[in-house]
Amino acid sequence: MEATAIEVNGLRKLYGGTAAVDGLDLTVRSGEIFALLGPNGAGKTTTVEILEGYRRRDGGQVSVLGVDPAVVHGRGTRTDPAVRRWRERVGIVLQGTGEFDELTVGEVVTHFARFYPAPDDPATVIDRVGLSAKARARTHTLSGGQKRRLDVALGIIGRPELLFLDEPTTGFDPEARREFWALIRDLARGGTTIVLTTHYLEEAETLADRVGVITAGRLIAVDTPRELGNRASALATVSWRTPEGVWERAQSATPTALVADLAARFGGEVPGLTVTRPTLEDIYLDMIGAAA
């Protein structure tokens, strides 16, 4: 397996003369969970769909599992075995879902398994995404969250090396989201590289080894969720209640010293004490605010 799953240099995509993706660089390491963040219209989906081989690009180099996805657009490649082998290694969960109204969950997953040379067991996959109770249900009777789980099942049935997830948990309730996160971690532990786009900062923070922020068609920052935008060394906010009952707040680069000082002043417990660093959301909103 290559050390890098995805390598992108200077990617460009124009729509009617305006650049939706404008010189984007990106590296995703094999085996990591990489989250792409960015406001709507920043170029996330365009970028991901170029990597998936759905869209052509107008410039730059792209390598996905050592293959340039543009090969799928070449003449005479419809039946090219190399294209097929590449497709076998990449799992895709799209944003919009194509439904198979009158078929059951079991029928659809079993059918998709036939597309792959070494698929997972359909029943196991259905169980893994939590749809066992619905295996015999027609897909049009599923709820929004259940349909999404079916999408994921179809994305992983071929045991891909690389899995794309475009806003996978939109419409999930909190419990379903947590179960889904467990599934993704489980896949990553099994060695699958995962690239997901999401609007949920909490999702990126819990799941991702690294996050990248896209605005205006460029990747403006890449780091671990803890380090993104110098988050770890950003000023901490310390707040407490004075004996008069007034809330005080102070920003500090040395919050530990400040807390020790407060403790000495109060002679023990500091009432209502909290120490916070900026959340990923604070950092992210600052970033896209500054870029815009």
Partner: peptide, 19 residues
Amino acid sequence: QERDRGVLKRLLGTPMPRW
């Protein structure tokens, strides 16, 4: 209708031969 629902797009993303 299947193209609108995304059925075709989904199939295109799998190794299923187009024929």
